[in-house]
Amino acid sequence: MNQELSNRIRQKLVATGEEERLKELLKTRLLSSGWRDELSAVAREYLKAKGVQHVDVEELQNVLLVEARKSIPDTVKKELLVEIRDFVMQHEGIL
């Protein structure tokens, strides 16, 4: 997908408030699937191992990002994809 089209879809998502709805939907799904708890456990382990004084947010973010993306349940990704597809279909003008 080209950058310009991607930007147009993003702008439409933001302007209609759909982005906020998807964000809340995603939050709810990640929370109820246990993703959030699992990830915060990984973070805790890391902090414990290195000592809280020796880790900054930047480092923690880099460590967690890979794990965080990898562990998102497939059903959640799929649901979000369908939601975005439906949104694009409803706003054909974007394409």
Partner: peptide
């Protein structure tokens, strides 16, 4: 969006 915000 209260369905989401308040549900969890």
């Amino acid at each position: 969006l209260n369905e989401f915000v308040r549900s969890v």
